[in-house]
Simulated assay, not measured.
Amino acid sequence: MSELAPSQIESIVAACRTNAAEASAALGRAIDGEYSIEVGQAVPLESLTPGTSWAVSGLAVVLVVGNQAALFVIPGSSGIVPSWCASPDPTGTSKLTTLAQELGMLLLPEDLMPDDFKAAQIKNLWGGIQRGRPAEGAIAVPIALKGEGKSADCLLVWPLKASTQIVGANPAASETSEATAASPHSASPENAANAATTATTATAAPDRSASANPQGTHKAAVAAGTEAGRAETEARRAESSAAPRSIGGKPAQRRRPTRIEDLPAYTRSLLKIRVPVIVTLAEKRQPLKRIIELGPGAIIQFDKSCEETLDLQVGDHRIAVGEAVKVGDKFGLRITSMALPEERFEPLRPAQPGR
Rank of each mutant, 00 (worst) to 15 (best):
S47H: 04
N19F: 04
R274I: 13
G295L: 01
G66L: 02
G332Q: 01
P341W: 06
V43M: 05
R334D: 07
P90R: 08
A187Y: 09
V13E: 07
A205Q: 12
P114S: 07
A192R: 13
Q101E: 10
G225M: 02
A15G: 06
Q41C: 15
A182V: 10
S183I: 07
S53T: 15
T49M: 11
S7Y: 09
K146Y: 08
V279N: 09
D111M: 07
P257G: 05
C85M: 13
D89G: 10
G322K: 01
S36M: 09
A173N: 08
S77T: 07
K289E: 11
A120T: 10
G92K: 00
V64A: 05
A298K: 06
G149V: 12
S94A: 12
G295T: 00
L263T: 02
R237E: 06
T198G: 11
K330S: 12
D153H: 05
I166N: 05
Q68N: 08
S24F: 00
S188I: 03
P75K: 03
G297A: 06
P82W: 03
F117Y: 12
K272Q: 10
P142H: 04
S2V: 04
F117S: 11
G354S: 00
S211G: 15
I129G: 03
S240M: 10
S305H: 08
Q165H: 10
K150M: 07
T226D: 00
T93H: 15
A223M: 00
M1I: 04
C306N: 15
G216L: 14
R285W: 12
K326Q: 13
L340I: 12
G79V: 02
V43N: 03
T200F: 11
A193R: 14
Q253C: 14
I273D: 09
Q215L: 11
E232D: 15
P171M: 05
I273S: 10
E323L: 14
E148C: 03
S269N: 09
Q286P: 15
E232K: 14
W54F: 01
A204M: 12
R237T: 05
E190G: 14
I291L: 10
S337G: 05
A86E: 08
E22H: 11
A182C: 14
A205W: 10
D32N: 15
A70H: 09
R254W: 10
A298V: 04
T200H: 11
S241T: 11
R285V: 11
G225P: 02
P244Y: 00
K250V: 12
E308C: 10
K123N: 14
E46G: 09
S57Q: 14
A26E: 01
P244W: 03
G28Y: 03
A235K: 08
M338Y: 12
A339V: 13
S177A: 14
T180P: 06
L96G: 00
D111K: 06
A202T: 06
D89M: 07
L160E: 02
T336A: 05
T198M: 12
Q130F: 08
S78I: 02
T226A: 00
K118I: 09
V141Q: 04
G322S: 04
A242T: 08
V141H: 05
I319G: 09
